[in-house]
Amino acid sequence: MSIARTLMTAAFVASISSPALAAFPDPGMWAIGDEADGKPGRGIQLDRQGGKTLIFTYFGYREDGSATFMQASGQLIGGKTFVGELVEFKNGRALGGPARSGEIAKVVGPIAVTFSSTTTGTITLPGELPQKFGRFQFESNLEGLQNRRFAAATAGPFAYLNAAEVMLDLQGKMLRMELSWGQPQNTCTHTGDLVPAGKGFRSQGVVSCSYENSPTRYRIEDLQVDEYGMLSARLYRGSEETIVTQPQLINITGVCQSKGAVFVGISICRPAELGRDSVDLME
């Protein structure tokens, strides 16, 4: 390996070294324990609008079988914990009824949540033991990951971007991701599982790089390609020990490159290539 290439590779790797960031919970519907069985049940609607404030709306049933909802709100502590009081309400406006303001019926009890990732955690409800708690996924968006190439940029702890190229492909339930950058080109190939996680996916496995003699471990969180073909993900790398305690972090963003014929240059992916209708994306 040339001296210039060695220095370039070292600079790239150094730029992605940083401690893991707090994983803020993904807004949306969350399932409690193993209760997501496809039948009418209970759950949590969690809202977060880019900050630390969380609003939990619990929907479930009373002892007599009638439906109810309760709410708790407060601040996320340390990037992973929440403690609040579940409050039940009454006398609000009914469907088709006149306007009237609801009022507190009673404070039901404390709710405590510990998040282990953006889409998983543990929840303790009033009168119940701690149990698993996870983002409910009702739609799979695999089209954006199937044999797709992206013009991308990577960023570590410093305020600059590195131009890169990302190639994603699925092999059964396994993910293969190639990340390439630099001149001459360096390539890291990531191969591992693919697990649905909220509006995206997570993956973990082995990464082999052209500038390293032996493979290391990786973990990807919040991997997604949105309806406009924009890629985003957080990639963590490290040894068997440091992948958990102090992994290297690289943030990835990119735009999908179309496979269709174009007259000049490479165009972005068309809606049909991502399993969507162009009418759906009209503004």
Rank of each mutant, 00 (worst) to 15 (best):
I3C: 07
A4L: 12
T9D: 09
S15A: 15
I16D: 06
I16K: 15
A20T: 15
A22W: 04
F24S: 09
P25V: 00
P27M: 01
P27S: 02
G28L: 02
G28E: 02
M29S: 10
M29W: 06
W30Q: 00
I32M: 04
A36T: 09
D37N: 14
G43M: 01
L46M: 11
D47G: 13
I55F: 05
I55W: 08
T57Q: 11
T57P: 15
Y58V: 03
Y58C: 05
G60V: 02
D64L: 03
A67Y: 14
A72G: 13
Q75N: 11
Q75M: 13
I77D: 10
I77V: 15
G78A: 07
G79V: 01
F82Q: 14
V83D: 10
G84C: 14
V87N: 11
G92W: 04
G92M: 02
G96K: 07
G96L: 09
G97T: 02
G97L: 02
G97I: 01
A99T: 09
R100E: 12
I104F: 01
A105R: 09
K106D: 14
K106L: 15
G109P: 00
P110S: 11
I111A: 01
A112M: 08
V113E: 03
S117N: 14
T118W: 11
P126D: 11
E128L: 07
E128H: 13
L129F: 10
P130N: 00
Q131H: 08
Q131Y: 13
Q131T: 10
F133R: 01
G134A: 14
F136M: 14
F136Y: 10
E139M: 05
E139T: 05
E143K: 00
G144P: 07
Q146M: 05
R148H: 10
A151Y: 03
A152L: 12
A155W: 09
P157R: 09
A159G: 08
A163S: 12
A163N: 11
A163Q: 10
E165L: 10
V166S: 08
D169W: 10
L170I: 09
K173S: 11
R176K: 11
L179E: 08
G182Y: 05
Q185V: 06
N186H: 05
N186L: 07
N186S: 07
C188N: 02
T191K: 08
T191E: 14
T191I: 09
T191G: 04
G192V: 00
D193S: 00
L194V: 02
V195W: 01
A197S: 12
F201P: 00
F201C: 01
R202F: 05
Q204S: 10
Q204V: 13
S210N: 04
S210Y: 01
Y211F: 15
E212K: 15
P215K: 13
P215R: 15
P215I: 13
R217W: 03
L223P: 12
Y228A: 04
M230I: 14
A233M: 04
A233F: 03
A233P: 03
G238H: 05
G238N: 09
E240C: 05
E241T: 02
E241A: 03
T242C: 01
V244K: 07
V244T: 07
T253D: 14
Q257W: 03
G260Y: 07
V262Y: 13
I266E: 04
D277V: 04
D277C: 06
S278F: 10
V279Y: 04
L281H: 00
